[in-house]
């Protein structure tokens, strides 16, 4: 049929557009040549150099640490927001609450980063803390904008599932807290895991906000990578890309697994 041919073509072209650049990146990571664009032969040379590059390894460890911590905090706060918005009726200044918890989703990172930096500087002038910027200030900033992403996932999950289960448990004598820990949280657990994975990835990937709030000893991976590729190409970054793309895509697949599980 004619229309199904159009359909397949559109989908094929769309997927080709989305995956072609990623494949190109992976392909060139195996190039022996130091000049990235001139193919010289298959080699794992740049992977070897990557693993011996202390600057990149150190930045990678810092990034993972910040991402894991900020994802955990953002998940705790995000679950609270999602729960409050769906299950708790009386929230003072509710539209302000919604504003605070959803604006970071769209506000340009540059404005967010600048506001955080000026905030930390002002705070230091007033109470003498934080005296210098670094991993702690990046962590705080990342929690602040990751919260919104977790909240939206939890909110969607809570809206989806039947409130009657909670009410039934309450009729059977469970108190409010017990319902939360024994019924609600276990049911939304897959979405909590999904939210954590999303927050982890966003934090790991952030360049702009981290550039504003970083300080001595807190060069995250994107900051190091950006400094290497801003003006040119780097064969080591190609190797890093291939590894990182692969790892992040695996995380993405886990996200889908958890986000969809128990849904139907």
């Amino acid at each position: 049929m004619k229309s199904s041919l159009i359909k397949s073509t559109v989908i094929f072209l769309g997927l080709f557009f989305l995956y072609f650049p990623i494949l190109v990146l992976i392909f060139y990571s195996f190039n022996e040549n130091k000049r990235v664009m001139v193919w010289k032969g298959f080699s794992l040379r740049w992977y070897n150099e990557l693993f011996n590059n202390e600057q990149i390894i150190e930045a990678f460890i810092i990034s993972i640490k910040i991402a894991a911590l900020s994802a955990t905090f953002a998940t705790i706060l995000g679950v609270m927001i999602g729960y409050s918005l769906v299950r708790i009726r009386k929230i003072p200044f509710k539209s302000f609450y919604i504003f605070l918890s959803s604006t970071p989703l769209v506000l340009p990172e540059l404005i967010l980063g600048l506001s955080m930096l000026l905030f930390f500087i002002s705070l230091n002038n007033v109470i003498g803390f934080p005296s210098s910027r670094g991993q702690l200030t990046i962590f705080i900033s990342h929690v602040t904008f990751c919260v919104a992403f977790v909240a939206i996932i939890i909110q969607a999950r809570l809206t989806d599932f039947n409130k009657n289960i909670e009410e039934a448990a309450m009729d059977l004598g469970y108190n409010y807290t017990k319902v939360l820990y024994k019924i609600t949280l276990p049911i939304i657990l897959p979405s909590i895991v999904a939210g954590w994975l999303l927050a982890f990835t966003i934090s790991l990937d952030d360049l702009v906000v981290a550039s504003f709030t970083t300080g001595p000893g807190a060069n995250t991976l994107p900051i190091v990578v950006f400094s290497k590729v801003r003006l040119g190409l780097s064969p080591e970054v190609n190797a890093l890309s291939a590894i990182l793309m692969f790892a992040l895509i695996i995380i993405g697949l886990f996200y889908f697994y958890f986000n969809k599980k128990f849904k139907h």
Partner: peptide, 16 residues
């Protein structure tokens, strides 16, 4: 899924 892989590196891919 491509959205999950690094933003910075996807831009870098176009540079190549």
């Amino acid at each position: 899924i491509p959205f999950w892989s690094s933003f910075l590196l996807r831009v870098y891919a176009w540079k190549i």
